[in-house]
Amino acid sequence: MEKPLIIGAVLYDPKVSVIWDIIREYFEANHVEMDVVYFTNYELQVGSLLSGHVDIAWNSPLAWVDTRRRTDGACKAIAMRDTDQDRSTHFIARKGSGIRSLKDLKGKTIGFGAKDSPQATLIPIQTLSSAGLKADSDYTVRRFNVLVGKHGDHIGGERDAFDALNAGEVDASCLLDLNWDAWTADGTINSSAFEIVDTTPRFDHCVFTVLEAFPKADEARFLEALFAMDYDNPDHQEMMDLEGLKKWEAGRTTGFGPLTSACELTRYFEEA
């Protein structure tokens, strides 16, 4: 009898456990027994993946980079959501502020998300560096460290940074493209008052991660059930809406370049 697969997931809101309960029931109905172990932060989760206490980690992009670093590349990205691919972060400023490009941010204060947020802090800092702007010397960094350890899963940091922009406390803020789209659509952001100044290069986000030694047969049965999820199936749609995707995609690693560069630039793992 096959043993249950153990999935690791970081949880900051107990309501997210309801989504994992639904996913677990789906896998069990598809004859893949699964247990989900929750972690309070990604460092603990990566440690448990490396020690073999979990089989598959639902990793943030920063946790993926950390896993690869600590295994010397002996790990695999086996699946991700369609919405985890080709994301970008916008630099937002108030219209009429005179900030029309990244170069206009010289001497200004920029609001970022939590210090471990790939999308709201690390990748934007890398992008600014590529434009010739060094953190804390060419511009002032103001971080909104909401739920550090969760790698920016909680949008609170981005929201607080935007609120600071709205209040005139910072000159620009960083926002994931999906959050800009959602918040301009629901009126959280007045799109006639704020504009996108520039955008980071595209990057990838969360990914199911396994070690190289993970049995191929277990990987195959997990993926077979995962890829059988079909958004056009009414029984799957609610689950997929809750998880924020229309389709599961095969894992890829080509989208982690900007974050890897950001971690090197900021010496993130040396200073964490």
């Binding site: 949880l11 456990s17 172990v37 929750y38 972690f39 309070t40 932060n41 603990l44 989760q45 448990s48």
Partner: peptide, 11 residues
């Protein structure tokens, strides 16, 4: 701490 009910490791 409701997260402890879910046995969240580290809580």
């Amino acid at each position: 701490n409701p997260l402890s009910y879910l046995r969240v490791v580290g809580e």
